[in-house]
Design a protein around this nucleic acid. Sequence first.
DNA 1: TCAAAAGTGTTTATTCTACACCCATGC
DNA 2: GCATGGGTGTAGAATAAACACTTTTGA
Lengths: 208, 208
Amino acid sequence: MAVAVVVVIFTVRQERLNVLLIERAAEPCRGEWALPGGLLLPGETLDAAARRKLEDETGVSDVFLEQLYTFDRLGEGRAEAVVSYFALVDIGRTRLRRESEWRPAWHPVRPPPPTAFDNGRVIHYAEERLRNKLAYTNVVYSLLPERFTLTQMQQTYEAILGERLDKRNFRRRVVGLGIVRPTGRFEKQGAHRPAMLYEFTSREPMVL
Amino acid sequence: MAVAVVVVIFTVRQERLNVLLIERAAEPCRGEWALPGGLLLPGETLDAAARRKLEDETGVSDVFLEQLYTFDRLGEGRAEAVVSYFALVDIGRTRLRRESEWRPAWHPVRPPPPTAFDNGRVIHYAEERLRNKLAYTNVVYSLLPERFTLTQMQQTYEAILGERLDKRNFRRRVVGLGIVRPTGRFEKQGAHRPAMLYEFTSREPMVL
DNA sequence: TCAAAAGTGTTTATTCTACACCCATGC
DNA sequence: GCATGGGTGTAGAATAAACACTTTTGA
């Protein structure tokens, strides 16, 4: 009996919120999809275990990562408690592991992908928390590059919330609340005219 | 290495929010105050362990009890993970254990009482969560009798928030949001005229 | 007759929501 | 010249906040 962590790793891909799942190579539930996770190493803290798992699977660190909820009886059997975390990664920076018997892949969260154990519950809980956090925190900082246009940012919000937002209201809020500020620099956007680049006032997790 | 739970048990007493602490009879930190808690029994779920601890200390069950956060390195040593819960109990229904080497007692949370381990952090976190929940849930149902006056309810809110509220705005909100409804029954209040009794629309934890 | 608590509405300020057009650029 | 995406302001609705007096009762 011991403690395990699982990590719900989200990214935005093709205008959709996606979650990272791994095809299980071992019994039980071989061949089914499940969240990355595992037992703590001796002496390791919970946060460290979650960060380790995150980095193992995606190669990234220094992103938003937060504890979510602790489950028991999560089907795994080996652990008496499973501490869940959720993380947000910029897909541009991730390099998924690709080994023969270890298949991580991104799955859109809507509709919910079939998963082993009770992982659907964990993912749903993480989604809920993420959506709530959008309103009053800067969480999306780890889904965007250092400098970005407000349109990019808005598209990220829309992907996560699954609904369209009004451009002007969005800009007012996000600038007005001090989540981001204009850098004063412009940059050509594709085939179009230059657009203002913004940055987060803080690139650490913060609550407003 | 195993899993432990601790429970932050709140009540309102003398117009103040209080927390239940136990004077430690054993090393480490003998004689200091700490939150009630302990290891899981074999096969026990986390929720069940928290309920057991709650009932052991206060004699009550069927009250609001919710998981809070999972800590590691909480000083106890024996556990690699400590899952914290918080609960709200009506002081009128509690019967604290009173044994020679086991001293539970209520302590006002403001100013924060000195505690062993990192229990101050846990308590502070629980307070924060409780205060947030007041705004959009019916959590206080387990701090009040079945029928109560709105003044009683308001005093409970004020004790928890540590600030005075406007009577009319309070009543509008709490009735308007459907947290409580009038029962149609009146009752004499002390030396004063009869007052309407209210009840919660639900006595289960609910989010509005 | 005084103290203590219950009850009751309105006004103002603030916040949120909905909504439409112009401009610069690359093709 | 046209399609694409960036940029901007305002009016109406809804919500939240401030505020004071009357009533009943028991002492």
